[in-house]
Nucleic acid binder design. Structure first.
Lengths: 198, 198
DNA sequence: TAACTTTGCTAACACTGTTAGGTAAATTTA
DNA sequence: TAAATTTACCTAACAGTGTTAGCAAAGTTA
């Protein structure tokens, strides 16, 4: 049985090579310039081999965006775990989200791109849900602390998530013509303001 | 001189035909499926003719997104002009923005798509600016009315714009797996809340 | 009418995603 | 170990893409 195992391992390795090469290409040239033949070149196989591991090009981009979500979620969990109060957690959440978007534009565009060739129409249900759940739990804690209306937690989660995501999206989309200095302070102020009014 | 004028008119007409056909295709098949040859087919010319009017495919998408901005801005101006108070204006702004995104997904994706083949990196300066200016003016009026700190108008414009755009983007991006019922009420509540805390 | 400009075409280049079909190596079975 | 079978991988091809070169015909000007 060890032969079959080795083969499986080898196959998994090639699969990983494909994703790695694709991510590298996406990072350096943008997702629009990604091509199957470029990936094939990079991993030193012929192009059709890729179709033994992925149904099509979209599936590769999809998997990369999934990896992006895993990375973002892991970053957020790490950042949050160190904080003592829910308010600090919320701040850490935003800071991590923002830093992730800035440092991993390729991931961010693939993950949240409106009308991307991957990641559309209900595909990201669990990933979006996971992020939303984190916010919801923190906000719930703050509301309980503040003894305001707990039933507003769901709405407030949406509002918070919208504000943070909207700000980040706008900044990433038009990075060239936005004064870099004000960005972080606006974001900080936004969080403080939202927390105050929870 | 009338010959030259007629020629110019004719050329302008073909240009318009190209944009119209392209928009039609984008609306029916999505911007990813748009091809020069399809446009050429639709306008009953050969493909290279298109390059007498546009530098490349991106330029066509860019012009369509510009038209989208014009349409959105016109809608907003119309909606605002009917309102008596700045608060009503702000509500009308949001409602128009939201309706535009829902009814013209193709435009919206092209205009605000993170990492779109057109519309990236500083190209939309004036259009984004125009939208921001409208918000800014309304918010300034409300702040003056409320006699709160006028210097916060700029920051509050950013915050408001982020929230509205973030909400809309998220909803458009994952239209399939969001309960349609809550959308509008969440948006409404968001605006009311923001106005209260201006 | 002759020269020139514009218009629009066909053909081609260099790519793209994806599939079909074949070959040679690796593995399993007899 | 030899034959049979599976697998791994390739080349070639199809149908499509954006874009450019070069040519022919039509329209315009002198």
């Amino acid at each position: 049985m060890s032969v079959a195992e080795r083969k499986l391992r080898e196959k998994e390795l090639v699969r990983k090579k494909i994703i790695d090469a694709a991510l590298q290409l996406v990072k350096s040239e943008g997702w629009e310039a990604l091509s199957i033949r470029k990936i094939a070149d990079a991993i030193e196989y012929s192009a059709p081999v890729i179709y033994d591991h992925f149904a099509n090009k979209e599936a590769i981009l999809f998997e990369i965006s999934q990896d992006g979500f895993k990375l973002l979620l892991s970053n957020i969990h790490k950042a949050i775990s160190k904080k003592a109060s829910p308010k600090e957690e919320l701040k850490a959440f935003v800071e991590t989200y923002w830093k992730f978007a800035l440092k991993n534009r390729s991931y961010f565009k693939l993950m949240f791109g409106v009308g991307m060739p991957c990641c559309g129409e209900g595909k990201m249900k669990t990933e979006f849900g996971a992020l939303q759940d984190i916010i919801y739990e923190i906000i719930k804690k703050i509301i309980i602390e503040k003894k305001t209306n707990i039933e507003s937690a769901c709405y407030k989660t949406h509002a918070f998530w919208s504000a943070i995501h909207g700000f980040t999206s706008i900044m990433i989309a038009r990075s060239a013509d936005v004064p870099q200095t004000m960005n972080v302070s606006v974001l900080d102020q936004m969080v403080v303001n939202i927390i105050e009014n929870l």
